[in-house]
Simulated scan of single mutants.
Amino acid sequence: MSDVFKSVNELDTKDVKWIDARFSLQDSELGRKKFEEGHIKEALYWHLENDLSDMTKKAGRHPLPAKESLTLLFRKSGLELDDQIFIYDDGGSPFAARAWWILQYGGFKNSFILQEGFEELAAMGVPVSKSTDPSVPSNVVPVWDDSIFATREFVEKTVEGKTGNVLLDARSAERYRGEVEPIDPIAGRIPGALNFDWEQLKKDGSFNLSDTVGEQLSEIVKHDEGIVVYCGSGVTAAPLFAMLKQTGYEHVKLYVGSYSDWISREFVEVAKG
C-alpha cells in the first residue's frame, strides 16, 4: 500500500513545497482567482489547462504536455526531486490528483495529495497569504516513470487482448454505457473496459480512505492485474489512479488522452450497453 492521500495533520509542514491546483471545468479562471484571493503561504499555482495540459495538441480534451514543457514547469517552480510536495485543491476534486500524477511521472516520488481542501486547511490554521512571490528556479532533471503512462498504441493493443491489462473507465455508469454523453461527440466506451465511477471514491466531499473503497475496487479489478485507467479527458481518472495506488495496486497506468482521444480518429470502435 502506498501513501498517496494524506491529511495535513499527519505531515511535518516545515521545509515543504505547496502546489495549489484549484480549478473549475465550468470556469477555467476560477481557480486562479481563488488563488489570488488567498492561498497556502508560499504555494505555487498550477493551472490545469495552462500548466498541466497542452491544449494545442489533438490528443483528447486535456492532452499531456511534452516532457520538455513539463521539465520547464518543474524548473520554473523551483522543484527538486527529493522535495516534499503537498498538493491541494478545493477538496474531493480531481485536479490535485492530476498534478500529483504528473509529479509522479516526473520522478517526484515524495509528493502527496492532501485530503483537505483549501478552505479546510485555512480553518485548521495552516498559514494563508495573498503574496505571489516567484520561486527560485531549479535545474532539476526529471526521472521519467513511463511505466505509469499508457499511450494510445498501448490501449489499442490492450483492446486487442495483447497486453494482459484491464481497462477501467472512471466516468459515470450512464456515460460508460453510452446512454448519455454531455461532452464528447460520440457516446460509449472503449471496448472491453470495466467501470468504476470516480465519484464513488468520495464521502462527505472528501476522498474516502476507509477499507470500503478498497473492497469496492477489489470487486472490479484484482490486485495482481495490470490496469489502465481512463475517463473523458484524463482528469477524473487521476484520482482513480491515485486511489488504486493508495489501496495497494502496483501495476496501474493512466491513459491521459482517455475517451476523448480514443474517439478522435475515424472508424474508431466503441462499445455501448
Results as ranks from 00 to 15, higher is better:
E199F: 05
E219N: 12
R177I: 00
L201G: 02
T236K: 05
A187D: 05
P182K: 00
W198H: 15
P185S: 02
K203Y: 08
L209N: 04
L201V: 07
Q216N: 14
A187H: 01
K222S: 14
V235D: 10
V180M: 00
H223M: 11
A187R: 08
I183C: 00
G178I: 05
T236I: 10
Q216V: 10
S218Y: 04
G192Q: 07
E179H: 01
A187I: 04
G192S: 04
K203S: 11
I186A: 01
F196P: 06
G232Y: 01
G192H: 04
A193H: 07
I190Q: 04
T212I: 14
G226A: 13
T236Q: 09
G188A: 03
P191F: 09
D204E: 14
E199M: 11
D211N: 14
P191E: 07
K202Q: 07
E179P: 00
E199C: 03
A193Y: 07
C231G: 13
V180L: 01
V228F: 14
A193R: 06
G232H: 01
E225T: 12
H223K: 15
E199H: 05
G192C: 06
D204I: 13
G178S: 01
I183Q: 01
P191G: 08
A193P: 07
D184Q: 00
C231K: 12
V228T: 15
G205A: 03
N195L: 08
S233T: 15
Q200N: 12
I227L: 09
R177A: 09
L209D: 04
G205H: 05
I186W: 01
N208D: 15
G205I: 07
S218Q: 13
F207Q: 02
I220Q: 09
E179N: 01
R189T: 06
I227A: 10
R177G: 03
D204P: 06
K222I: 12
T212L: 12
Y230M: 07
V221D: 02
D197Y: 08
L201N: 06
I190G: 03
V221Q: 10
E199G: 03
N195I: 08
Q216D: 13
F207R: 06
N208H: 09
S206T: 15
P185V: 05
S210V: 15
G226Y: 15
E219T: 09
A193I: 08
G188E: 01
H223S: 11
G234P: 10
D224K: 12
S210L: 12
L194D: 05
E215W: 02
